[in-house]
Every structure is written in structure tokens, then in C-alpha cells.
Amino acid sequence: MLELRDIVKIYNPGTITEMCLFQGFNLTVADGDFLSIVGSNGSGKTSLLNIICGSIPVEGGQVLINGEDITKMKEYRRYGRIGRVYQNPAMGSCPNLTLLENLSLADNKGRPFGLKKGINKARREYYREQLAALGLGLEDKLEVKMGALSGGQRQAAALIMATLTPIDFLILDEHTAALDPKTAETIMELTDKVIREKKLTAIMVTHNLRYAVEYGNRLIMMDKGQIVLEKAGAEKEATTVADVLHIFNEISIECGN
């Protein structure tokens, strides 16, 4: 379980450009939840993910995973139990390493990186199986440098890499936003499949209202650092894109967009 308690986040504190984003923000994500977060630019979605992962500090409040306070824990240590897929497909892998080398790195997460062989040949078949399940033909590209693959292929590989080792949370940071509509659809379906198969707890930020409505069991909409809409369970099942869009537009009109 992930808990954010009374989070305070101020950008540029003490300067003329000081901006208070979160003032006592609270959010609880239960195990097995698949939470979608929508909201306009600047509403605090990405800041929220960065606070969970420790990429940015907070000015107040606590971040807890399974009751353990990780507010002061360094970013890289938090990733021991968190997997993250970024908006930019290039962020999830090393372009000058081969797909096999990238997978081997991801497979060794949580263990020491010592002087053993970097590539475990015995795992090759397992990687091929995992990639074949994607249906993108990646299983025959293990020796290809990651940079030579398409954005969709790289994002699919990034998704596999992020979930190759056991993790508590999967963080999806607008991970379909940089892809063409068809590829985005494929990646979204894959994401849902991976989350179900591996029984992951996931938090997805998206600008695609349809994905937010169709996938996951919880939906929140954020505006100016606050949750303005929350739907879960059966209530979420009954929610349509039109409902969400309606509220989205109302907020936008208030803001003058």
C-alpha cells in the first residue's frame, strides 16, 4: 500500500516565482489498485509521480510504502520496489546497448552488479518468450541495438524491463503520449495485460481520457494540486468519457483555457 500524507510541495521556495502546488495533499493506493490520473498541464500529476519516486523533494508530509516512511529515502533506493515507464521511449533503455544487454541489466535489478557475466545465456529463452508475447517481433531482435528500434518497440521493451523483476508499484508517466494512436493502443493493451498477469499495483498518468476510463479500477482527476474527481469500483465502471470530459471542460473554462 502506498500512502501520501499531508504532502506539501512548493516550487522555488523563498523566491518571487514561489509556487505552492500541494498544500496538505493526501492519497492512498491499495495493493492491486490500477489508478489512472488525469488532469490538465500543471495540475500536479507528474509532480505527484516524482514525489512518489523521490525524483523531487517535498517541503512537508510523508510518503509511506506498506507503512514504512520513505520520505527521506534516496530516489535510486526507492526504485528497488518501483518500476517506471517514462513518456519518452528513449528514457527506458540504453540506445547503444543491445536489447539483450538492456534486458540483462533490468533482470539483475535488486542484485549486486559484480564481475559475473553481464549476459546470462540461460535466461535468453525466457526473454524470447516474454518478447514473443508482445507480438511485435522483438524476440528476433535481441542482438539489435536499442537505438535502432522504433519508439513503440522501445516502449514495449521498456515496459517488459520495468516489470521483469518483482516490484510493488508500476509507475506509468504518460507512457503512451509519444506514440502514434495505433501503437499507443497496442502498448496500452500490453500494459493492462502485464498488470493483470503480474498482479501489479499501478499508477498511470495519462492525457487520454478514454484510457483512463477504460482501464484500471480507480480514476482521479487533478486540478491545481487537488483531487477534483474520484471514481472507484462500480462507480468507475459506470463512468463514461463524456462524464469526465464534461468536468474537464468546466475546469478549463474556469481557468480561461
Binding site: 526507492r78 528497488g80 528513449a90 528514457m91 533503455s93 541489466l105 533490468a106 520495468a162
Partner: peptide, 10 residues
């Protein structure tokens, strides 16, 4: 190549 990836590898 991509230091962000190293961070996400914990």
C-alpha cells in the same frame, strides 16, 4: 548511455 535507467535499476 542513459543514467536515468541506472537510477530505475535501483
Amino acid at each position: 548511455d542513459n543514467s536515468t535507467l541506472v537510477t530505475t535499476l535501483a
